[in-house]
Design a protein around this nucleic acid. Structure first.
Length: 303
DNA sequence: AAGACGAAAGTGGTTGA
DNA sequence: TCAACAACTTTCGTCTT
């Protein structure tokens, strides 16, 4: 899951399959050990061999209420049915019908929640792995009885927010709130509740994670993106990031980078996509250029 | 006319007694 | 539970290009 070393931040990781370990090349920290080998131990040269040697079915997925493992009572072999006593036959039909309509409260809840999840995530445009994570979190929340007394939508939204952060593709609370129709405040509150109850630990979002998304919305060149990230990285050690809203900091660095790379965007434009006000950008970017000693460069580029 | 600037008052959430 | 508090927003008048 982690693609960065938590110790030194290096992304230079190595996976050694013989030792079943994942290590950081820079500082030597072992990130994962006793990895499970998920590759096949057999080969199949044609379809028949594959049929014979396959021991598994399709993938498990958490986005289906039954994890994709559904089995239904078949329609085949009805002729045999007439050999049974009428009462047995009636029982068969009853079972079949009962089976078709999933009956426990949890399952029905899950079905509804997952269709809700589909709606929201396609509205915001989120990849499949995030849906999977969301579904998993939601499933845990349901089995722990955390949904009681809360609207289901808010729990789905909160799980989605958590999943996005876990995958380092953060969406702002505003975006989630808009897509789900749950109030921002409610999403935040539920998010805090379920992460606490489920013991999910998430680091504060880094502004860097927002750069690529905001930049592409502003149609900025890759060079400017790089610049914005570089600005953030050099600001990291200087206590300009912590305690500040990550979106504001991201917006400020994009504003500065776009000016320096002569691809200028107005504060208004940047503020729009980042979901902050111009005033915030001003405050943040003043701090940034002051601390990094690039005030004159900035003034020069603006002129 | 549009963008940038900054002061001042208001808002929602966190923290610590 | 309440007050203090920091970050952020809203609003608005002024300056710059």
């Amino acid at each position: 899951m982690a693609d960065k070393c938590p110790e030194c931040g290096s992304q230079n990781l190595s996976t050694d399959s013989r030792r079943a370990e994942k290590t950081c090349i820079k500082c030597g920290l072992v990130l994962e050990e006793r990895q499970i080998d998920t590759t096949q131990e057999w080969r199949a040269f044609d379809y028949e061999q594959k049929q014979k040697r396959d021991r598994t079915g399709s993938f498990l997925t958490y986005t289906r209420h039954d994890k994709g493992l559904s089995t239904s009572i078949g329609d085949q072999g009805y002729s045999d049915l007439y050999k049974l006593a009428p009462s047995k036959r009636a029982a068969f039909y009853r079972l079949k019908r009962w089976h078709r309509q999933v009956s426990t409260a949890t399952e029905r809840n899950l079905r509804y929640a997952l269709s809700e999840l589909d709606r929201i995530s396609s509205a915001i445009g989120l990849p499949k792995n995030i849906r999977e994570t969301t579904a998993l979190i939601y499933r845990k929340a349901v089995t722990r009885g955390l949904v009681r007394g809360r609207s289901m939508e808010s729990v789905v939204a909160a799980a989605l927010y958590a999943a996005c952060r876990k995958h380092n593709v953060p969406r702002t609370l505003d975006e989630i709130a808009e897509g789900s129709g749950v109030k921002k405040r409610e999403v935040g509150r539920t998010y805090r509740f379920i992460t606490r109850e489920l013991g999910i630990k998430l680091l504060p979002t880094s502004p860097i994670d927002y750069i690529s998304r905001f930049s592409s919305e502003l149609k900025l060149s890759p060079k400017t993106q790089e610049r914005a990230i570089a600005i953030l990285k050099s600001a990291q050690g200087k206590d300009l990031i912590s305690g500040r809203g990550p979106t504001g900091v991201a917006a400020a660095s994009i504003y500065v980078a776009s000016t320096l790379e002569s691809e200028k965007r107005t504060q208004r434009e940047v503020a729009e996509v980042a979901g902050v006000t111009e005033v915030t950008i001003r405050n943040r970017y003043k701090e940034l250029i002051e601390e990094l000693g690039i005030e004159d460069k900035m003034a020069e580029a603006a002129a």
